[in-house]
Simulated scan of single mutants.
Amino acid sequence: MPPSEATLIRLHAEHATSVYRFAWSVTKDESLAQEVVQELFLKLARDGGLIASAASERAIIFTLTRNLALDALRRHARQAKAMERLSHELPEWFLPAHDGNAEETRLLLTTTLAELPEDQRSVIHLHMWEELSFREIGELLGAPTQTIASRYRYGLEKLRAALLKLEPSLA
């Protein structure tokens, strides 16, 4: 059962600042620390039993904060590693056939890929790098195969448009 609104307000008033400082000391990143604080209070709002069953309210709050901060660090590291890998593993057919600046092209495509909507980016990643079929991706994401194919096509069109800005002769 979720805690009352008054309990959440009290918990936030009493602990938000110190939780933020602690999250920042773990993550050394302002935005990750803010994310951790938000996740903590969402978790507390969803599950009132966390606080009700704890011997020490403060201890459970800081334990949860530490765990969420470590999760955020791991998630951030995975995302950074994936983006780094993407920047060096773009399929060769993405790169222009001319003698242009391949690194500039890689950077443009990596940036454009990162800016795609998450559903298109996921489908492109799963199809190109994980070599899953559209049917397999559909099962994984809970979407029809045609929807997956459309997301892939729309994502590729956006990547192609970015390439054409760099090298109009590829049209």
Rank of each mutant, 00 (worst) to 15 (best):
Q79F: 07
R75V: 07
L64T: 01
A114V: 06
E57H: 01
L116R: 07
N67K: 07
I124Y: 03
R85L: 14
T65S: 10
Q146G: 09
E57R: 00
L140I: 13
L132F: 15
E57Q: 03
E130N: 14
E103R: 07
S56H: 05
L140D: 04
E131P: 06
G138K: 00
L42P: 05
R106D: 06
K81G: 12
I137W: 00
P91L: 02
T105L: 04
I60H: 10
I61R: 01
A143V: 08
A59F: 14
Q146K: 09
L42V: 12
L73C: 10
E39Y: 02
A55M: 10
T110G: 04
L73D: 05
F134H: 04
E118D: 13
T63F: 05
S133A: 09
A45V: 09
L64M: 04
R135V: 08
T111G: 10
E130W: 07
H76W: 13
L116F: 09
L73N: 09
R85H: 08
E89S: 14
L50M: 09
L86Q: 01
L140R: 11
A72L: 10
G49F: 13
L116T: 13
W93G: 12
G100H: 04
G142F: 10
S53Y: 09
V37R: 01
L86N: 03
L68Y: 07
L95P: 04
T63A: 12
L126I: 12
H88Y: 04
S122N: 11
A80S: 13
G142N: 15
S133Q: 09
E118W: 15
R106S: 01
K43Y: 10
L90I: 12
T105C: 08
L50D: 01
E131T: 05
V36C: 06
L70I: 15
R46E: 15
K81N: 06
H76N: 08
L42F: 10
E92I: 15
R78T: 05
R58M: 05
L44A: 04
I51L: 03
L126D: 08
L50E: 00
E115K: 06
K81S: 13
E57G: 04
E115Q: 11
A45R: 03
A69H: 00
R46V: 08
E84W: 13
G142T: 09
L107M: 14
L141D: 02
R85P: 02
H98R: 15
L108A: 15
L109M: 06
T147D: 02
L126E: 08
L113C: 03
W129D: 14
H125L: 14
D99I: 05
S87R: 06
T112S: 08
A45L: 06
L86E: 02
E104L: 12
P96D: 03
P91E: 11
E57C: 00
H127D: 05
T65G: 05
L132K: 13
L95Y: 04
R106N: 02
E89C: 11
A82P: 01
E136S: 07
V36F: 05
E103P: 02
L109K: 01
S53M: 10
L132H: 12
S122A: 14
G138Q: 00
G49H: 11
E103A: 14
A55E: 07
R74G: 15
L42D: 15
T147K: 01
E118I: 11
H88M: 03
Q146W: 12
